[in-house]
Simulated scan of single mutants.
Amino acid sequence: MGRLLGVFRFRVLTVCFRFIRTVSYRERTQTMRVPSRSSGPQPSVASPAPARRSPGSARAVARVMPDLDAYRDAVTDLLVEVGALADATSTTARQVLLDQRLREPAIAAVLDATPQGFIGARETLLLEMARYQPNERSSAGDLTALVRIYLLSRIDVMWWRDAPTFLTDEQVNTHPDMVDLEWLRRRGMLAFRYQEQPATILGRGVRAVRRRLRPDATPRTAGVKFRRARREIIALLNDLAREFDRATPAGTPPLWVTSLVRSAEHQYQLRRLGYAAMVPSGHCLGWAVDVEMSWFTRFGARDVLAEILLARQAAGELNVVDEGQAWHLCLAPAARVRLRAAYEAEMGA
């Protein structure tokens, strides 16, 4: 009975949403073309096996970049419907909803352009939803947040689909494209702040005592495991930190970075601990970071930082994902050359 009720609710909601969106959606998507792996029909969702992309198809996607504004709008619409079917009795209705909505051209174009392809991305999302368990560590406070984080983070892996993944901690620590932030910090070359994860029991104890004595002195975050980053990311964070400093009153703390590059090894460890660590991830490619947001509310600066980040997204420089306490940022490939030049000019490299 609960399942039938869920399906009935879904059908009613579908009729309402389609009536509201019909005119605007047709105007927005009538000229769009969904990239596919062949000249045949669009990818079927019947097969459970993740599809692999051929080199020829990757070149085709590069020629026809999906409309990211349309994608984000379509994801926003989808989230409203997912939220209306969030209860446990609506599992079947949610799956029917996703089967339909993920096929929409604006969404399918991005998913099809990821390394997993449309089918693989869809199956991964369904698996994430099936395994989802809310907990204090996860940035996904509910099922709707999980879907939002997953779908918006697919822009990262679409942009950097040809970038190699850092599989192990050793690869992160020894890769020539990674720069040691501590070396730069000690020379006053960083405009942003971060803190490392304590490596020992003693270090964790000292951190805990400091938090008790001064609970709001720093963000409540575990810190970064790897104090390394790509040169372009360092230039981006310095640029954002300076803009943030100019836009906020004196006494406002600098931009605070909560997460940088991660290895796939570390990403899976975070997943085991209950964090909403998506795979594939822009963090494991070295092109994504997380910045603190909630802590800046006490300084009246959170909204200022949000405006700065969203303006960069509108300019095509970043992909921004609201993950609650921290926001996830991924650098767009189009901004790479400018930021590499900025790093070399600033650091004298």
Rank of each mutant, 00 (worst) to 15 (best):
R230A: 10
W256H: 14
P280A: 05
P280R: 02
Q269L: 13
L285M: 14
G251D: 04
T248L: 03
S263Y: 06
E265Q: 15
R214A: 08
V257L: 11
Y275Q: 04
S259E: 04
A264S: 10
L273M: 14
R212N: 03
T258N: 13
R230L: 13
A217N: 08
P249Q: 05
Y275G: 05
A288G: 13
E243R: 14
V279L: 03
C284L: 04
L255C: 04
L240A: 04
K225F: 08
V224E: 02
F244E: 02
P254V: 11
L236Y: 00
L285Y: 12
P249H: 12
A264Y: 03
A241M: 06
R271G: 09
L285F: 08
T200W: 09
V257R: 07
R272M: 08
Q267D: 01
D290C: 15
A208R: 12
R204I: 02
L260N: 08
R211V: 01
R230C: 02
P219A: 00
V224D: 01
V291L: 09
R262K: 12
V224P: 02
A217C: 12
Y268E: 05
P215K: 15
S259Q: 08
W287M: 10
R262Q: 09
L273E: 07
D239L: 15
S259N: 01
L240D: 00
M278P: 03
A235H: 03
R231V: 01
R211D: 01
R231I: 04
A241G: 10
R262T: 02
V209R: 13
T221V: 12
L255H: 09
D239F: 00
R228S: 09
R204P: 06
T200C: 09
G282Q: 06
V261C: 07
R271Q: 07
V206T: 08
L202F: 12
D290G: 15
R272Q: 05
V279D: 01
V289W: 03
T252Q: 06
L236H: 03
L270E: 00
R230S: 10
A208M: 11
G251R: 07
P249T: 11
S281N: 14
R262P: 10
M278L: 10
R271D: 05
D216Y: 15
R246P: 01
T221H: 12
L236W: 02
N238S: 09
A217L: 13
R210S: 13
R271E: 03
A250T: 09
F226I: 07
P280Y: 05
R242H: 10
F244M: 07
R220L: 03
V206P: 02
G203K: 00
R211E: 09
A241N: 00
